[in-house]
Simulated assay, not measured.
Amino acid sequence: MKRRTLLATAALGLGLAFGGAAQAQGMDKAKACFVYVGPIGDLGWSYQHHQGALAVKEAYGDKVEIAWQESVPEGADAERVLTQMALSGCNIIFTTSFGYMDATNAVAAKFPDVKFEHATGYKREHPNVAIYNARFYEGRAIQGHIAGKMTKSNKIGYIGSFPIPEVIMGINAYYLHAKKVNPNVELTVVWAYTWFDPAKEADAAKAMIEQGVDVIASHTDSTAPLAEAAKTNGAVIGFGQASDMADYKPSPRVSSIIDNWAPYYVKRVGQVLDGTWESTDTWAGINEGEVEIGEITEAVPADVKAEAEAMRDAIAAGTYHPFTGPINKQDGSAWLADGVTAPDGDLLGMTFYVEGITAEIPQ
């Protein structure tokens, strides 16, 4: 994935300096800005981030102005958009895709009085940059349990966006929990190399279905995989990704992972207003309400639903971790001993599949 020097006038520089002083003491009004990798109508990732932006407006009313730009490519275009936002008076800018990481830090260096928040990355190179993420793998474990129990062909699938740790850990969690309840399960992984491209996502789903896959999870942002599953007259099921995708209930969408960014966005904008914002590294999950498990529909047998909900509750309570050993790496080498849970550092840097997955990770 792709991860101009500006000549500012003296007046602009003075304005930014005063803005920084105001932030340190709190502000009467603020402008919060959002950059999305897809359209806000994708009904997935960008849609859900925009719901969080709207929650900020609802929470603070006239005290906060919100602005956004959708379908911003990762790379040079992102740096241009972020620069324009900073110059337009944004006090805090949320960059909501992994590939914005380098652009976020580059522009943050030029605008030290603007707060930047980057989603799903790991670089926090300046004191005005924060990073935030969600423990999506917790939801993938629950989906894997359902998949392993409900597959009739013993073939389950996963549509990957890009081979980054966030996606790889989701694949691993999905497979491990399917395998636990169905030792005969086989996993097919198809890489779409996009976050949002309904045609490519549909093609990936079609390819899986043609290979006999009857349960599909996806780490891309459109409803296209569910639309393809819906054409099979109940033979293939799947899951909502990032948002509920409720239009496909009760089947093929039998549950979903819902990214609930609203509480985080409301909190962080509030801290800009009251002058308490600090550079932080946040990774929240089911326990904090940032990852929600959408309704498990009647298409799922009652006992499987109860098991999935029990797993959700155990993860929330901290009594179960989806990556608990014994777990080996794909090559058979030991990773986690019996009863040992994966350190966050291992997960955030995950570049390997677990034992039993036969696919290869693209380089």
Score class of each variant (00 low, 15 high):
153 S>N: 05
47 Y>Q: 06
20 G>A: 10
81 V>S: 07
81 V>P: 01
233 N>V: 05
57 K>Y: 08
221 D>K: 04
186 E>H: 13
293 I>P: 05
217 A>H: 00
320 Y>L: 01
149 K>C: 04
33 C>S: 00
236 V>F: 10
82 L>M: 15
251 S>Q: 15
202 A>E: 10
238 G>C: 10
142 I>A: 02
282 T>D: 09
233 N>E: 07
336 L>M: 04
110 K>L: 14
134 A>C: 13
74 E>H: 04
287 N>R: 15
104 T>K: 01
98 F>R: 01
198 P>M: 09
136 F>E: 06
134 A>K: 07
270 G>L: 10
264 Y>A: 02
79 E>M: 10
275 G>S: 11
242 A>Y: 02
161 S>C: 10
34 F>V: 02
99 G>E: 03
1 M>K: 02
147 A>T: 01
140 R>K: 09
110 K>W: 13
183 P>N: 09
343 P>N: 12
237 I>C: 11
138 E>P: 01
157 G>L: 02
54 L>R: 14
278 E>H: 09
318 G>P: 00
309 E>V: 15
152 K>S: 09
20 G>E: 08
8 A>I: 15
363 Q>E: 14
361 I>P: 08
274 D>L: 14
333 S>D: 02
224 A>M: 08
187 L>Y: 05
78 A>T: 13
291 V>F: 06
130 A>M: 08
141 A>F: 03
209 I>A: 14
261 W>T: 05
99 G>N: 06
185 V>R: 01
288 E>L: 08
135 R>H: 05
118 H>W: 13
61 G>D: 04
328 N>D: 14
108 A>K: 00
105 N>E: 12
177 H>D: 07
263 P>K: 03
126 H>Y: 14
244 D>P: 05
122 Y>V: 15
267 K>G: 10
6 L>P: 14
54 L>K: 15
59 A>H: 12
310 A>P: 05
280 T>L: 13
222 S>C: 12
105 N>W: 00
249 K>V: 06
129 V>C: 02
179 K>I: 00
330 Q>D: 09
361 I>A: 11
290 E>G: 10
58 E>H: 10
222 S>T: 11
306 A>L: 11
322 P>R: 02
245 M>E: 01
45 W>N: 02
106 A>V: 11
29 K>E: 15
199 A>V: 12
23 Q>I: 13
121 G>I: 05
43 L>I: 14
45 W>K: 06
326 P>A: 12
109 A>K: 14
126 H>S: 15
328 N>E: 13
340 V>D: 07
159 I>L: 13
142 I>L: 05
185 V>N: 01
107 V>I: 15
284 A>M: 12
133 N>G: 11
54 L>G: 09
80 R>E: 15
211 Q>P: 03
290 E>Y: 09
113 D>H: 13
219 H>I: 05
61 G>E: 04
242 A>G: 00
137 Y>T: 05
98 F>A: 02
52 G>V: 09
9 T>Q: 13
355 E>P: 06
101 M>E: 07
134 A>R: 09
339 G>P: 06
310 A>T: 10
302 A>E: 14
191 W>C: 01
230 A>E: 08
255 S>M: 02
65 E>K: 14
162 F>R: 03
39 P>H: 12
183 P>Y: 04
115 K>L: 09
257 I>T: 04
